[in-house]
Simulated assay, not measured.
Amino acid sequence: MARSDLIKPEIRSIAPYVPGKSIEEIAKKYCLSADKIIKLGSNENVLGPSPKALEAMVGHAQDINIYPSADAGELVSAISKYVGMPEDMIVGSGPGMDGLLDGLMRLLISPGSEVVISTPTFSYYELSARANGGTPVFVRRNDDFSIDVDSLKDAVTDATKMMFICSPNNPSGNSMSETELRSLVENVSCLVFVDEAYVEFADRTFVSLVNEYDNLIIGRTLSKAFGLAGLRIGYGIMPAWLKVEYMKAGTPFNVSSVALVAGSAALSDEEHLKRSQEMVREGRKYLMDYIPFTVYDSQANFVLVDVSPVKAKDVCEHLLRQGIIVRDCTSFRDAGESLIRVTIGTAEQNKKVVNGFSSF
């Protein structure tokens, strides 16, 4: 028997995750100076983390020899204040929201289980489900990237455990409506997971609806608006009955002690959050106005650019040679070959992006 036969077939069938390119990778490949490269391919906060978060990390560094709280209680308390929901409906997670997804899949999915995914969207929903023996069922979004509510409902079977919807959606940046979400949760038997990773940049959130529906889960992260991508902090807002079960399946101590204090401090820094939001609002408008291709309206900290009739890979290659890292969306299921996702940067970075597209 080959050693590879020891690996579960569910894992062998998974296509590797495709991350955004790193500065080091591009500097080496194109013989560029790293300090001349701008990284706008992973939807990070270019302003960096909250100063309060940095101060909290330094102040607690000497305690890393001690295990953190098993249930991330300090962070859960800070999240509760931030979102206005009770602690018995909140779970902290690491690494990032991906950890929340893995915990839910471990809790819910067994061979034969199905999950419904509205595509194109974040690929980790599929990866996590497959890794746990689940079968993804894909429902393509409409041409304008709005969700197809009727088709999503029709895709649910007795085997469906979860439906995944990202709002604002990655990579398209658009949000679904409250009417659409209510129609789904009221007419399906499965759990509905709404990924609100980019909600701080949007004009709506569905957190309060968790009080009304016992099959709705909201996932969030501190990687985007709060600038803590390197600490990998996520959280979930879910019905109290589900939290009880989730805590049985979730990994204990999965949020580090440094992440607990940094995350709690970041959530309290309203000034830094407002600066980040304002930078994104101004940058979105600038890129939409001046990139010389079709740019979709966005509620996130990125915009989606359609460069058809040319291919995304050719435009991305052109930009990389200028030291501009953006995201070729070809690897997103059902995204086609002409879409590019661009993270909002500083005013100077955004100008460089516009010049790069304009010179193609």
Rank of each mutant, 00 (worst) to 15 (best):
P86I: 11
V156T: 10
I90Y: 04
A240R: 09
N170P: 04
G236Q: 01
V295W: 04
D297T: 08
I79F: 12
T121L: 03
Y82N: 14
A312H: 13
G250Q: 15
A197S: 13
I64F: 13
V303E: 04
T179H: 04
M97S: 13
R275Q: 15
S77M: 14
S256A: 03
C190I: 01
M238E: 04
P49I: 08
P49A: 05
D71T: 14
S146W: 01
L228S: 01
L304H: 05
A259G: 00
D334K: 01
R12S: 13
L152F: 08
V315Y: 10
P252F: 06
P19Y: 09
C316G: 11
D306R: 06
K8E: 15
T294K: 10
Q62R: 10
G133R: 11
F332A: 04
V303I: 12
I79C: 10
N187T: 00
T157G: 06
M57F: 05
D289I: 02
R284I: 05
K248R: 12
R130I: 07
C166K: 02
H318A: 13
L181I: 05
L339I: 08
S359H: 05
P9N: 08
I147E: 00
I7G: 02
I23K: 14
G345M: 06
N65D: 15
A53C: 06
L191R: 01
A2R: 14
N45A: 05
T160R: 04
E348N: 07
G283C: 07
K39E: 13
T121I: 05
D98I: 13
F164A: 06
E348R: 09
G283L: 06
V310H: 12
E271D: 14
G99H: 05
P9H: 12
P292C: 05
F302D: 04
I147P: 02
L260Q: 09
M288L: 03
F138G: 03
K274H: 13
E200H: 15
A312Q: 13
P111I: 10
G356W: 03
E270I: 12
N211D: 12
R3Q: 13
Y286A: 03
N43S: 14
G323S: 03
E178S: 07
A240H: 13
E126K: 05
S189R: 06
L228W: 00
L75N: 09
M97W: 09
P120K: 08
T330V: 12
H60S: 14
C316E: 15
V207W: 01
L339H: 08
P68V: 08
G59C: 02
A72I: 07
F145K: 00
C316L: 10
I237D: 01
K52Y: 06
T251D: 09
L260H: 02
I79M: 07
Q299T: 06
F164R: 01
A259E: 02
A312N: 09
G219M: 10
V18D: 09
P120E: 04
S172I: 11
F164S: 05
G134D: 08
V91H: 07
F206G: 00
S77G: 15
L287W: 00
K39Y: 12
G230D: 00
V354A: 00
L209D: 03
D88V: 09
R281W: 11
S151P: 02
R220T: 08
D102R: 15
S208Q: 07
G73S: 15
L127G: 03
V305G: 03
L242M: 08
I218S: 03
L319T: 07
V310C: 09
E200W: 14
